[in-house]
Structure formats: C-alpha cells, structure tokens
Simulated assay, not measured.
Amino acid sequence: MPDDETRPEPGTPAEEERTEAVPHDPTGLSLARETARAMGARARRRRPPPSVTRRSVDPVSSGAHPDDRDPQTLSRAVHRLVDAKGWAAEVNVRTLLARWALLVGPSLAEHSRPERYADNELTVRTDSTAWATQLRHMAPQLVAMLNEQLGADTVRFVRVLGPDAPSWKHGGRSVRDGRGPRDTYG
C-alpha cells in the first residue's frame, strides 16, 4: 500500500479517525495491521532509552562447556544414582557374579550358580556334593580373586551348598528328631 508512509502515529486523534473511516475488510488483514501498529507504538513508548537498558548476566547460565544442568545420558544418570545411594559395591558384586563362568571356569559354572550375596558372604549352590567339594577347595582362591576385582573385604567368606534336598520339616511346630522320611517309605 503506497499510503503506509504517510500514516500518522498510532494512538493520535488522526489515526483514530482514520481507523473508523476504513471500510469493512472481510479478511481482517487491515484490522490486524492496525492492531499490530498500535501495540508497537505502545511498546515503544514504554521502552527506556537504549543508554539505560543494560543486559544482565545470569550467573548460573550454562556456558560453552558441559555441566550438571545439561541433558545427561541414561548411563551417567544411573551411575550418579548408584553413587548417591551407596550401592556401588553391591552393583559391582552383582555384575561380577553375572560373569560367573569367567570366574570359575566353564565346567564348574555349568554345575554351580551363585545364589546370594549378603553381609560380605557369597552363597553358591552346586548340582552335586562332588562339585560342592571341588568348589570348597577352590573357595580361598575365589575370595582372593573377588576381592582383587571388587576391593578389599568385599567378600570375606564363600559358603558352598550342595544340591537341594526335600525338607521333611513342615511348619514351625514340627518335631526336631522325629521319624522323618522313614515312616513315609516303609
């Protein structure tokens, strides 16, 4: 529009008269332009002079180098959680026990499995008493190897259990030296 340059400043009486004299615009384009000009004029009147305007520096804004407020990878977040909760030793033991075959060898790992780690004691279950005996003989080397990889005194004792046997004790009030399985089989 060529008459844009000759328009009076928004908010002046001449502008208000001109706004009322504009014919109906079905698209609303002229109304949008007039509204934008009026808003701009109000903003310019409220704005302080450029010499007074100072840009404040935010002392906690992120710079060019990474810091704790930047997005983190999931693995780093999990590591921070483990460290904060004090679970590092427990997680390290579980990770190492997940590689049981590398610790004791493939043949022994085939017939034994770690069951529990609590109070610096590792409990291992075997398939037979022969494998339990072999693992008991190997227990001091296993403790030394675990402590070497996990840190001193992480594992103090390895308890080796034989195969699971059925329990004939039922309930808390059973007879301690009762007949047991003999009365069942004959």
Rank of each mutant, 00 (worst) to 15 (best):
T6C: 09
E34F: 02
D164K: 12
A64C: 10
H111S: 03
M39W: 11
R94Y: 04
R173L: 12
T35Y: 04
A32N: 06
P8G: 05
A101K: 13
A41I: 08
M1A: 10
R42E: 07
G105I: 13
P10V: 04
R7S: 04
D58C: 08
H79Y: 09
R173H: 14
G180M: 15
R136M: 07
P50M: 09
P26G: 04
D70N: 14
D164N: 10
S128C: 13
G28S: 11
S56Y: 08
G162K: 08
L96W: 04
T73N: 06
G28Y: 08
R99M: 08
R116L: 02
R80G: 09
D4P: 01
P49Q: 09
N147P: 00
W168L: 07
R136D: 03
L135I: 08
E148I: 03
R182K: 11
R18C: 00
R54Y: 03
G63Q: 09
R55D: 01
R33T: 05
P166Q: 11
G151C: 04
H24I: 09
G28V: 12
R33H: 07
R69H: 07
P49E: 08
V60D: 12
A165S: 12
N92H: 10
P2Y: 09
V143C: 04
T184G: 14
R94D: 00
R116W: 00
F157I: 02
V175N: 06
H24Q: 08
H170E: 07
T53L: 14
N92P: 01
L96F: 02
S75W: 11
G186W: 05
A144V: 03
S128E: 09
Q149L: 10
T19I: 12
R176K: 10
E148S: 11
V82H: 01
S61F: 04
P140R: 13
L150E: 00
E110K: 14
A41N: 08
L74V: 14
R37C: 02
A21H: 10
R80S: 14
G86D: 07
R54Q: 11
F157R: 11
G171S: 12
N147A: 05
Y185I: 12
M145Y: 04
V93N: 01
A152G: 05
D183A: 14
R7G: 01
R156W: 00
H79M: 10
D25K: 08
E148W: 06
S112H: 00
